[in-house]
């Protein structure tokens, strides 16, 4: 019987397709882990997370601060201002349990991070605060939609030299549904992505790489030296276990990163507390430190 050429052609096509794809992909390690290896990896990862968790966040604010939080929820109109950002009552109420956060809350938080970084004492050896710079939630929107040129992103940093910073902090909004944290880490030479659902990653790092290339060409008039730079999609990012807390995870990730801390100590169980702490912080235009 004659072989079925149509079938053979099909399977060959599939095979060549696969070869072509594999060829274009970064080389994967041929070594396959055994169950034992996987178990060890899992144990190591849990141990690492447990070590991070040794520093625990409190369950609640001191009584008088909890009362201040309640008062802030009831204060009408504009509640607080920081730099060029302001937050109204309808914004602050997004920090009540189960609400989605909006740009106003996240950008206010970012403005506080910028202010804290500007005021830090760089000579204080105990201070872990980095020379950080937060770019607003609209930066990513412009970068993705219009690109560097059409979005006129060179003007966004007309008063800031990003290349003089330790870290650039960037909140990323995904299709008006999800917030993740990203960073350009000049100290560690990394494009970083932190997603409380572990879905975003590579493409975020890739966009940041393109931005750095364009910004350097525009401001320094020569190509950026990417030697030693790599993408870091953090798999140990604390994960949300619901459909509403990603904005809080994002703010807290950016806050930790501004202190040079990329092993985050918060987790899902801290979200109720962190929402209230954020209300206090925004209401007083001042970040707290209790960990």
């Amino acid at each position: 019987m004659w072989p079925d050429f149509a079938d053979m052609r099909k399977s060959l096509a599939v095979y060549f397709d696969k070869v072509a794809k594999t060829h274009n992909e970064p080389k994967v390690n041929e070594w396959a882990p055994t169950l034992e290896h996987l178990n060890k990896k899992l144990r190591d990862r849990r141990a690492a997370i447990d070590r991070q968790r040794q520093v625990k966040l409190p369950d609640s604010l001191p009584d008088e601060d909890e009362q201040a939080v309640e008062r802030l929820f009831k204060t009408p109109g504009v509640i607080s201002k920081c730099a060029r950002e302001q937050v109204t009552n309808s914004d602050i109420r997004r920090l009540l349990p189960r609400s989605w956060l909006n740009d106003e809350i996240i950008n206010f938080y970012g403005a506080m991070l910028n202010e804290r970084s500007d005021k830090r004492d760089a000579k204080d050896p105990r201070s872990k605060l980095l020379n950080a710079y937060y770019l607003s939630t609209f930066f990513w929107a412009k970068l993705v939609k219009d690109g560097y040129e059409k979005g006129r992103l060179s003007k966004w940093t007309k008063k800031v030299d990003i290349f003089s910073k330790d870290v650039i902090l960037i909140p990323v909004n995904h299709r008006n549904q999800h917030w993740t944290a990203a960073a350009i880490n000049f100290k560690a030479k990394r494009f970083e992505s932190y997603d409380s659902l572990n879905m975003a990653g590579e493409e975020v790092c890739e966009r940041l790489r393109e931005y750095v290339a364009a910004e350097h060409l525009n401001k320094k008039k020569k190509p950026f030296d990417f030697t030693g730079w790599k993408s870091h999609v953090a798999e140990d990012t604390p994960q949300q276990e619901n459909g509403y807390d990603c904005g809080v995870f994002t703010c807290q990730a950016l806050e930790s990163l501004s202190r040079g801390e990329d092993k985050f100590i918060f987790s899902q169980k801290d979200m109720m507390y962190l929402r209230r702490r954020m209300v206090w912080e925004i209401g007083h235009a001042q970040l707290r430190q209790d960990a």
Binding site: H174, N176, Q177, H178, G243
Partner: peptide
Amino acid sequence: DTIDVMVEQVGGSRS
């Protein structure tokens, strides 16, 4: 000069 108008952004999870 140009002024950009942006719309409110929200997020909580991914559907």
